[in-house]
Design a protein around this nucleic acid. Structure first.
Lengths: 200, 200
DNA sequence: CGTATCCTCAAACGATCGTTTGATTCCTGC
DNA sequence: GCAGGAATCAAACGATCGTTTGAGGATACG
């Protein structure tokens, strides 16, 4: 496997487990089986490596989210549940293949960090996704004020981030097949979020 | 102000802003206006200081939560909204006085950290609070399976942690008085969480 | 074969980390 | 007023951090 890929994989795992400051380049390069200087050679700095870890997954994740949203946005028979599925299912698919589930924990950390540089990077590169989804929610919930809508979307985001970063019930029991678990998880998340969004 | 209090206050602020590993004892003691060695003299180590930061706020917060829950637990006319209020309002009161709002951000970080030592400390000392609230939810939602209930409580926890750590809408607009803002926030959170818990 | 380019490597850089030390100051009880 | 523990202080400890360096290996093209 190419050196860059091995570094990115090890970085994802160690950032999820110990945080961005808690994971050192020495642990990281040792886990990847590469030389210490390889990070600065291939990525320039640790901060740029962190950005690459996000870029690699978020390009794919948000690409799928936007594709799913485009299919239903503006259609007359689209439901809240459809929009939530377009947002949630790609994230669960990411969790399913390879070490993608670790990335959701990295993403949860990025929310917890109030680091301005990182937040600006995420907002600049992927803020349009949340805006598009919010616009579609606004279309389907026309009776809500803008403030009320933002509140509810914010709370849904928190619930999903928490759940998908793997703190609670999302762990699959060993006797449930992977795909069935993913369906059940999606059903739980969508039902809960839809109720919250539609609350009177 | 006593040295210990000044350290705890500065620690709360810097841990919220830069994380546990990101905030150094040198920044911390400089912000508190005390000598570098004071932390190890009064608390023994940085890890014990972290625990004290939690203990100081959580003893008060969970005391109020349990007191509010005791008043309504088991009563025939108690509603889901009552139980949620017993959980949420003390946290918002904490956010209101002094630098308590910073503590909710520290708490959100503790959730994001998968540090086993810290998680065990929180579970050992304050796990009974979540269990009591969950038991009361179970009484009011008897039609839910145990698994379904855990799912929903977990999602509610995520939404509230996210909201109260101050990422989104919770910031008070300057033209809204503090107490009114707190009431509005509580109403938003309770309505959303109640809908999610009661979803069909 | 020669050489240019990409990559890897061990070693070192200065900075900063949490912690410890030992001297000094502060304050209390006798 | 003075002894003695409590508290504060500057300074240093060894360890680890992200980054840089310069030499050497690997590979492809003339």
């Amino acid at each position: 496997m190419p050196t860059k890929e091995r570094i990115l994989g090890a970085a994802e795992e160690l950032f999820a487990r110990h945080g961005f400051e808690g994971a050192s380049l020495r642990q990281l390069t040792a886990a990847a089986g590469v030389n210490l200087a390889a990070v600065n050679y291939h990525f320039g700095s640790k901060d740029r490596l962190i950005e690459e870890v996000f870029r690699r997954r978020l390009d794919q994740l948000n690409g799928r989210r936007m594709a799913a949203l485009q299919k239903i946005a503006g259609e007359p028979d689209t439901t809240i549940e459809d929009v939530l599925a377009a947002f949630i299912v790609p994230a669960l698919e990411l969790s399913h293949d390879g070490n993608g589930s670790l990335f959701m924990r990295v993403l949860a950390r990025a929310f917890a960090e109030h680091d301005d540089t990182l937040r600006k990077f995420l907002s600049d590169n992927y803020g349009h996704v949340m805006r598009q989804f919010t616009a579609e929610f606004a279309r389907l919930l026309p009776h809500l004020s803008k403030e009320e809508l933002y509140w509810r979307v914010d709370l849904v985001t928190g619930a999903l981030t928490h759940a998908m970063s793997g703190f609670g019930m999302i762990q699959r029991k060993s006797d449930v097949p992977e795909e069935r678990h993913r369906e059940q998880t999606a059903a739980h998340l969508i039902r809960f979020a839809a109720s919250g969004l539609k609350s009177p």
